[in-house]
Amino acid sequence: MKQITTTMALAAMLLASTSLAHAEGELNIYNWGNYTSPEMIKKFEDQYKVKVTITDYDSNDTALAKVRQGGSGFDMVVPSQNYIPIWISEGLLLETDPGKMENFKNVATEWQNPDFDPGRKYTVPWAMGTVGTVVNTDVYKGDINTWGVIFDTPEELKGKVNVVPEMTDVIDAAVLYNGGTKCTGDLTILKKVRDTLVKAKPNWVAMEYGTIEKMGSGDFSASSDWNGSAFRQRLKNPAIKYGYPKEGFVNWSDNLAVLKDAKNVENAKIFQNFMMDPQNAGMNSGFHRYANGIAGSAEFMPADMKGAPEIDVPAEFASLGVPSQTCPPEVQELYTKIWTELQK
């Protein structure tokens, strides 16, 4: 009986939502998986009577390849900052001028005029963070604020290190570890990078994305990782700490943009403005566990995120961050070759 009631309730909800979609319009968002707060989407749907559909992608290259072929049917996309110049130069984004929108005043000063989108003509901040190390400090007591944890693996961590297989992130980390600058084409540095990686690999156990679950379960004891992922691991096991490598680490951000071939342009613009409201941005951060670049959103985030060392970069490390940027194609080609050789 109870089940029947639930089924009927579900059917009613489905009916309600579809009729709603016909009545007021739709919005199709193409975003990274596990990255959009369902509560916040619900709020947007109720407030503007719009039916939102979210489709997942797992990498910038996948998103770019799919949208570039045309006819994707998506209205909005959330590329990383190093890809945004490509999206703009390929003519894939619509100039919606978020810099002139009502809620733009809430965007934190340092995110109001970024290099990748001067004057915020296309994009609105979605989330930002860093790439560093996570270490289970029950297993390893030494300094975790170094890429050495990954590239000169300490004895305790040998055979327990994972590396998240983001090619650019991994090679950049090794470049910084060898004293180079991000996207370097300097062959003497790159040779050292290759040697560092090839020498380190026998000490790694895996190269996988699923760190939240496997760090929590003890399959891995250390990994390269994103800070929000590190935060979720600490909630599972307090011994898991996030390290800011002293050799330097990459600061990244993902930003919400409207596609040039979007069918629901008005709803997409409303959503861009909606995301710059501190309450909504805070709600979203409570789900994906990253900072969001909207001033005043902190008070709408869950209490456990306040002052979290993974989210607020401690002052002593702040100067070590280098911005994520697009590497030129010829550097990308060198990176790919090193990457293939590493995994041969």
């Binding site: 990498s59 290259d61 996948t62 390849a65 994972n162 297989p165 983001e166 090619m167 650019t168 690999k201 790694w204 156990v205 895996a206 190269m207 996988e208 194609p329 990308q332 080609e333 790919t336 990457w339 293939t340 995994q343 041969k344």
Partner: peptide, 21 residues
């Protein structure tokens, strides 16, 4: 296997994704 060593399928996928070739 933990994805430490590429298979043919992974190698091909790499070229269409991060490798951009």
């Amino acid at each position: 296997g933990g994805g430490k060593n590429l298979m043919l399928g992974n190698l091909i996928e790499l070229q269409f994704g991060q490798g951009r070739n």
